[in-house]
């Protein structure tokens, strides 16, 4: 593997990590507030579909983005209603959302576009296009830094930059603001928040809605940035991988960036190198493609240190008598 091959690899790592990062941060907000969310997958999928469908129909990617986010927000509200208002089981609600999204997207896609559960291929203004950062071309010939800036940093769609920017913003909100303090508190001990005179329900709904917004961005990016249209089950387990990354990251924003970049890199390697020769042994392509999922299982099985989830996570809040 030579140096020239590394930049494109990292470039595609960044693009592949973006939906994971957005979904991971989405899960971070929800779970920090004490609402477990395995419905990240379903919300990404519904957003991917509505963004692609709306973009295909209207020809505007921005309208598509809005439709995608709206879809994810609606599903978030369902999850909130089930797990906060009606104090249902958060895992079951999440699973239900995943099934619902999986079935609904294909059904509507078939009804609207009659092409096997796909949307038409998107092009031009119906897709997010790459943004060239200022001076990217001018600095191209500067040794080392030039190519990095031009090939790696510049030339992504807006959502990639939004995702990267969301990391410090999340960190700041979580650890430097009043809202963050309350959010972290409600995931640890909602009774403390309640007796302090703050609405547990309100806080948790706000977190669930932020989760919806971010999964909406993730799904829209998947269908209109990374790909050119919606295909059935196109999230391909990315919601679960984001959950694994969240545990790996111990519910911290900067670690979430690192974890999702690692998953992105594995995915990029699998796409770029169908087979890899390592020390004379040929590693078959399917194995490479399975790597992110294998890593997910390893992480979820708890092989990577002890991750302590928010203490009140998964439990509906009931005032004690």
């Amino acid at each position: 593997m030579d140096v020239a091959a590394i930049l494109p690899l990292l470039d595609s790592t960044l693009r592949l990590a973006t939906p994971l990062l957005l979904a991971c941060l989405a899960g971070l907000f929800s779970e920090r507030s004490g609402i477990f969310d395995i419905g990240l997958e379903g919300k990404m999928l519904i957003s991917a579909f509505f963004s692609a469908a709306t973009a295909a129909i209207t020809g505007s990617v921005w309208l598509g983005l809005m439709a995608g986010v709206a879809g994810a927000l609606a599903f978030s509200l369902i999850h909130g209603l089930a797990s906060i208002t009606f104090r249902g089981n958060q895992l079951i609600s999440g699973v239900a959302i995943n099934f619902l999204a999986s079935g609904l997207t294909v059904l509507i896609a078939q009804d609207w576009f009659s092409s096997g559960g796909r949307t038409p291929a998107l092009a031009g203004p119906a897709r997010f296009s790459a943004i060239d950062l200022p001076f990217a071309d001018a600095l191209r010939d500067v040794p080392v830094l030039g190519p990095i800036y031009h090939d790696l940093v510049s030339g992504h769609t807006i959502l990639v930059y939004v995702a990267l920017l969301a990391v410090p913003v999340t960190w700041y909100v979580l650890f430097r603001t009043r809202y963050g303090l309350r959010l972290r508190a409600v995931g640890e001990n909602p009774a403390a928040v309640d007796t302090a005179g703050i609405s547990v329900t309100g806080l948790r709904y706000s977190a669930v809605l932020i989760c919806g917004l971010l999964t909406g961005l993730a799904g829209a990016y998947l269908a209109t940035g990374l790909n050119a249209g919606f295909g059935r089950e196109m999230t391909a387990g990315r919601g679960y991988i984001a959950l694994a990354a969240l545990i790996f990251a111990k519910w911290r924003p900067w670690y979430a960036l690192m974890a999702t970049l690692l998953f992105g890199l594995l995915e990029a390697v699998a796409i770029r190198y169908q087979t890899v020769d390592l020390l004379g042994v040929t590693i078959p392509g399917p194995f490479m493609q399975a790597l992110p999922y294998i890593l997910t299982v390893v992480i979820l099985a708890g092989f990577v240190g002890r991750a302590i989830p928010p203490r009140a996570g998964g439990a509906p809040y009931v005032k004690e008598r």
Partner: peptide, 23 residues
């Protein structure tokens, strides 16, 4: 009704903050 992994200070401030920012 305390948040176990918060500091004493954070527990006291929780819900009685003066503004958007914590510091």
């Amino acid at each position: 009704k305390l948040v176990e992994n918060f500091t004493v200070l954070e527990n006291v401030v929780l819900g009685a903050e003066d503004g958007m920012l914590l510091r």
